[in-house]
Design a protein around this nucleic acid. Structure first.
Length: 858
RNA sequence: GGGCGCUUAGCUCAGUUGGUUAGAGCAGCUGAUUUACACUCAGCAGGUCGGGGGUUCGAGUCCCUCAGCGCCCA
């Protein structure tokens, strides 16, 4: 501690208050650039954080307070440990959530076929009928709205005291992020880690885009089993199958049963004829056919579900695609080579009349009626409940539509990706299982194409030949030095704009990237990949995030880093749990139990909300608990008052150092303080901020209620008395340590009280070490202090039981116990006399400790 | 179907490698009251640690099993 340190005159208020501190300190931190990252720092001293860029189009909720407080507490710890903390903030503004919000907010929809209208103004109020606008107009509105949303988020982070360096702010739709994202794409493509393929893909018919495996979810939905009979091609009998999707019958290309299924074994290789459409299709064997399901034999359609795709691929079946991008049935040319039938006229007539252009539900009704009429429907339809694949943001089941998509190879690298996961320290450790089970369950490469508008475009065009055919196998790629590009308005190298959509010209890749394809590069975006800085912040030291995006953000970041840098993207990941409503239910918009943070923040204060958040351990789901916030607020007020008291005792003198701590009981308290420092430091190093807080808090309340009460009168003595100086030094040293131990969780109140006697912010002060405490007593910490507290407690109990004031006098305290107990009491006798208003002590040796308190008669 | 987590006082949660009589806060009850703090302090009461079995001198903690809740993956 510096010699010149002393309470600063006029700084300690007579009546300290908690309200209003936030505005004062936010401004001071801005002015002093307290959280500014030192761009010249070396890799060894840097602690870098890969902050989650929140989806700004979603609404702010209390979960944001919870999960962003955790990494901030960690950041503040490492900053005090002397690390140069790289703590950027990003906004994830590209992607479907923003598009949907813009559509609803302005009452518009994007129609890419329309020309740009530079004079377009959105309707004042959104109408029911959405206004169709060009892609460029639409993207402009996306930018306007996300900019406004980002302000709301930034206000919350600031108000909460998140120690971000705002000069490191980025957004995923910015030109910088687009350039990084496009460069990442080109690099992977060059190395063969990305390929494009025209293939059956899970497709959302409402959003009209492909979706990836990571965006899927199974939902239990009611359905019906329909038993349908197929006549054998040789006329000898029928085969009955069961299906939940009879409307797909026209695209049936085979029947399939398990190879070991004795019922169907003799039939493998023979043909059957589809009802209504008269197509001859083979009976095949495949182990994915479940003998227990239905009749044990299924029809394969192109494509009713993902198993159909597997069968189609592995059994080399023809394609008869039926479902279009809008979810309606396409034309089917029965009688052509691709569409065999025994009766082209009948098949065409029925299909054209009842199926073509219809929705799935309409077609199902028509097919079921027709099957029933022809007798091919056997028995009654049977209701069932079964899992159906949905887009996580979608409302109708996914269809499978053939389209051209870009894919990242993940399946071939499963083992390496699993090994990367094992290189990372997970907090809590068990969360690594989430990653492992996801990677082990991968069943398709990562589809990064989305048929949407507000996102990062692929930096690619395709040549058009003399026949007007697009050559998708030879994309024209952007020069990496020209990034970012928008192929829909930029022209590929060697071409002119006039050649767009022309023979011997080019067309642009129409798609944008999956939002995760960009946010998976958050370390590269925030750390400015390509610049010298990147090598000093990457791999990041910490990735904080929520557990529900392990399979998306965390996984995809590992994929990119593995391919690009042959490294993990971060060495630690801190997984926060969910915030549950007060009834321990998950918050969700549909239930309507979402809690917004601002009213709570204004009512209880930022330190109080942070206290609540920091009480939730890593990975633990935590209920909103206003009682806990009130406790946090009370703690902050206690810190103010305790600081005021201790600094008041110093009477403007220079702060005494540890050499002044001469009394055994005082040295023992510092020994306990030393143990606290060691334990909480170890807790923080292991990302267990909640335990560190709990320990500090428990120490602090005991310090206030017991130690301060014991030494209060001694501390009021003459400065010439070594015992007084010892008390004051102990109080000051402990206060200094406790203020710093609380600083990561309670940044506002701790900087306020620190400022009463220090220059500079507590958040730039050194994390406490036991070196500050001087040489400590030999015995186990607490060997004097604890017995003295026990005696104090006995005195208090006696007074409480007698229902008299704690200041009532005690005539005699009679104590007996082992030698070390007696010695401890002797060491604290003066303080006990003061604090307990005790007249005399009688001490004697004994095996057992007994304490008897005799009150002075009134 | 496979996996992970949780189950401790009325409520919210601690309980580190197995080791005195299982802890804290809140709520409850009984009191105190002015030189840091009524946004305070003291005291009291409250638990067969989800059920069952096992290992051990000793189990909230380790093993097996069952149940309930939540989640992840298929």
């Amino acid at each position: 501690m510096e010699d010149s340190l002393r309470p600063r005159p006029g700084e300690v208020p007579d009546k300290p208050v908690i309200d209003g501190l936030e505005a004062i300190w936010l401004e001071r931190w801005d002015d002093a650039a307290t959280y500014r990252f030192d761009r010249g720092a070396s890799r060894e001293t840097i602690y870098s954080i890969d902050t989650p860029p929140p989806t700004v189009s979603g609404s702010l909720h209390i979960g944001h307070v919870f999960s962003y407080t955790h990494p901030d507490v960690v950041a503040r710890f490492w900053r005090m440990r002397g690390r140069d903390v790289f703590y950027p903030m990003g906004w994830d503004d590209n992607g479907l959530p923003t598009e949907r919000r813009v559509e609803n907010f302005y009452g518009v929809r994007c129609d890419p076929s329309l020309p740009y209208d530079p004079t377009f103004e959105p309707p004042e109020k959104p109408e029911n009928q959405k206004v169709a606008i060009s892609r460029k107009n639409f993207v402009e509105l996306c930018h306007i709205l996300t900019a406004a949303d980002e302000v709301a988020f930034k206000n919350l982070w600031r108000h909460l005291g998140i120690s971000i360096d705002w000069s490191l702010e980025y957004s995923t739709i910015s030109e910088h992020a687009q350039a990084i994202s496009q460069r990442g794409f080109l690099e992977m493509l060059r190395r063969g880690e990305i390929y494009s393929l025209e293939a059956p893909t899970l497709w959302d018919i409402d959003f009209r885009t492909a979706v990836s495996q990571a965006e899927l979810e199974d939902r239990e939905r009611p359905g019906h089993y329909h038993r349908v009979s197929f006549v054998r091609a040789n006329g000898e009998g029928v085969i009955e199958i069961e299906t939940t999707r009879p409307e797909m019958l026209a695209s049936c290309v085979a029947l399939v049963a398990h190879p070991d299924d004795e019922r169907y074994r003799p039939l493998f290789g023979t043909d059957v004829v589809t009802p209504l459409f008269g197509a001859e299709v083979p009976i095949l064997a495949h182990e994915l056919a479940d003998p227990e399901k239905g009749t044990g034999i299924a029809m394969i359609c192109t494509f009713g579900d993902t198993t159909d795709v597997t069968w189609w691929r592995e059994l080399h079946l023809p394609t008869r695609a039926l479902i279009g991008r809008d979810g309606r049935f396409l034309a089917a040319r029965f009688g052509d080579d691709d569409w065999p039938t025994r009766d082209p006229a009948a098949a065409r007539d029925f299909y054209g009349r009842e199926i073509e252009g219809k929705t799935v539900n309409q077609a199902r009704t028509a097919i079921v009626e027709a099957l029933r009429a022809t007798g091919a429907l056997v028995g009654d339809v049977r209701p069932i409940t079964h899992p159906v694949k949905f887009y996580e943001k979608g409302e109708r089941p996914l269809e499978i539509v053939t389209s051209r998509q870009w894919f990242v190879r993940t399946l071939d690298h499963r083992a390496e990706l699993l090994a990367r996961g094992d290189e990372i320290a997970w907090h809590p450790d068990f969360m690594r299982h989430r990653y492992r089970s996801w990677v082990e369950g991968l069943n398709q490469d990562w589809n990064i194409s989305r048929q949407r508008f507000f996102g990062v475009p692929f930096p690619a065009w395709y040549p058009v030949d003399g026949e007007g055919e697009v050559d998708f196998d030879h994309p024209i790629l952007a020069d990496v030095n020209t990034l970012p590009v928008d192929p829909s308005s930029d022209v590929p190298p060697g071409y002119a704009e006039a050649q767009r959509h022309q023979r011997h010209g080019f067309v642009a890749d129409p798609d944008v990237m999956d939002t995760w394809a960009t946010s998976s590069l958050s370390p590269q975006i925030a750390g400015h990949w390509g610049s010298e800085l990147f090598g000093r912040v990457f791999p990041m030291d910490l990735r904080p995030q929520a557990h529900e995006i392990i399979r998306t953000w965390l996984f995809s970041t590992i994929v990119r880093s593995h391919f690009e840098h042959h490294s993990v993207p971060f060495t630690n990941t801190l997984i926060s749990g969910w915030v549950l409503d007060p009834d321990r239910k998950k918050m969700s918009k549909s239930i309507g139990n979402v809690v917004t943070p601002m009213p709570l923040l204004e009512q209880h204060g930022a330190d109080a909300l942070r206290y609540w958040a920091a009480s939730g351990r890593p990975g633990a789901d935590t209920a909103i608990d206003e009682a806990q916030m009130k406790i946090g607020r009370r703690l902050a007020i206690k810190i103010l008052n305790a600081s005021k008291f201790v600094l008041g005792r110093l009477a403007g003198d220079a702060i005494p150092g540890p050499e002044e701590v001469t009394l055994a009981i005082d040295r023992d308290l510092l020994a306990l303080l030393g143990r606290l420092i060691e334990e909480t430091t170890a807790n923080f190093e292991q990302y267990d901020y909640a335990r560190a807080l709990e320990r500090t808090e428990s120490f602090f309340w005991s310090f206030c209620d017991n130690f301060v009460e014991l030494v209060k009168i001694r501390a009021y003595g003459e400065a010439s008395d070594p015992a007084t100086r010892s008390a004051r030094a102990t109080l000051a040293i402990t206060l200094s340590v406790v203020q710093r131990l609380f600083a990561p969780v309670l940044p506002f109140v701790t900087d306020e009280v620190w400022h009463w006697w220090h220059e500079g912010s507590v958040h730039r002060a050194a994390w406490p070490t036991t070196d500050e405490l001087g040489s400590l007593a030999d015995g186990p910490p607490g060997s004097i202090y604890q017995p003295v507290c026990d005696v104090l407690e006995a005195v208090r109990r006696e007074k409480s039981t007698a229902k008299v004031s704690q200041r009532a006098a005690v005539s005699r305290v009679t104590l007996s116990g082992p030698g070390e107990f007696i010695d401890a009491v002797r060491a604290g006798e003066r303080d006990l006399r003061d604090a307990g208003v005790v007249d005399s002590f009688a001490l004697s040796d004994a095996h057992e400790v007994t304490i008897t308190v005799a009150l002075t008669s009134p």
